[in-house]
Design a protein around this nucleic acid. Sequence first.
DNA 1: CGTCCAATCTGTACGCCGTACAGAGATATG
DNA 2: CATATCTCTGTACGGCGTACAGATTGGACG
Lengths: 231, 231
Amino acid sequence: MTTAQRGRPGPRRTLTDEAIVTAALELLDRRGADAVSIRGIAAELGVAPNALYTYFPDKAAVLRAVADRLIGEYDLGALANPARPWRQRLHDLALSLRSRLLDHPGATAMLLGAPMDGPRALALGEALLAVVGEAGLDERDAARASYLLIVYVLGSIALEAAEVEPTRPAPPEAQRVAARKAAFDAVPATTYPLTAASADVMSRYITTEQFRWGLDRVIDGFAGPAAAAHQ
Amino acid sequence: MTTAQRGRPGPRRTLTDEAIVTAALELLDRRGADAVSIRGIAAELGVAPNALYTYFPDKAAVLRAVADRLIGEYDLGALANPARPWRQRLHDLALSLRSRLLDHPGATAMLLGAPMDGPRALALGEALLAVVGEAGLDERDAARASYLLIVYVLGSIALEAAEVEPTRPAPPEAQRVAARKAAFDAVPATTYPLTAASADVMSRYITTEQFRWGLDRVIDGFAGPAAAAHQ
DNA sequence: CGTCCAATCTGTACGCCGTACAGAGATATG
DNA sequence: CATATCTCTGTACGGCGTACAGATTGGACG
């Protein structure tokens, strides 16, 4: 973040940008999203709070770096592997991003709250462009489709995480579905007949199965359902 | 939010839930998202901060009510009007939601940060289910498609708002596109050739045109491109 | 009509937060 | 060795959400 002016006078740095991001993630997982504060991260690292301002200009920059770290956890090599059909590679990417991000509930606010312009986000965008290009789209539509995929994946994750966020580990899917079912069953069927009738499906919105279904509809939308057949 | 136990002893209430939500929105538009604090809203209403706790249990509940107000601004009657083709009605809804929410940059965090279980959100979901049903989907797929649409619309808006949020009125689209173009032109073409080649398209991700394109791809995905023809 | 007591609001306080500012100590360069 | 500069600490400010105690109000009920 801050360009370390090395080769200049001054004491050695005791931290690195990466160490700060790691401490922030550690805190995120152990004590929840609200605990990720400048003061909390500094305590985790055993330094005074304002020491972090040597490495990042402000808190938002730290959170952006955390978001970029999370995005970058996916192995982009797998995305380029020509042995697997491109549609399956997109599924792998989307499902992997989803599970990694849901492992850190509370991180989604960071991802959606800041523009994704970090180096790892760029690398992912680049790899995504290549895969979508394989679907036979021209350069223009490939770029648009890439963005559509990102919107879908991040939007899904955000809506799922909104129901989970504060507590540390997300409860198992079955339990979250049951909680949603109970909430929908409380909806008056007279005012909202369709909602009440679809309570079963709607309580399953947050499942991996629904995520896959939506992903396939999105891909069908830009590549055509036929593309499913000839891989 | 709080069930007013009227008919019980105690002085008359000086506020209402709605007045608090209105003040919060006023503050959001005039002074930005960070100004929407319990203390700020209370000052806007000429009341001590903790007076609000008579109406809402905590700040998160206030923000949820604000989100529900924003969602409810759309006229659901238009969504049911059978004179217009269902696809056009979906476009109307999506574009209206987008422009209303982008009028309040900073509100998206509220929408995505809390489960959408308010009364107006339910009403919108109900109306959406009806429209999607007209596309010829069975009950199950209609529910899934409704959720897919919501994910797309809110995800798009969130990613757009992330580049704008802090300042009050969003700059005009052309200006935001130009800023993005400048950023993408700075990307090294050697490391990210596809990104650099698509800089023009990518800088236009945040435009209404791209939003419409993505919306049509999503609708195509669940209804089939053919559905565009026979309305 | 008088009494009671729950509902509502205010005053005050606590413990957080992000971060600005000044200064002490360390250290590569001259 | 001297100096210029970087890094970290101490301290402080203004703001936040909200818990708690208490004054005030006014409908319900004897």
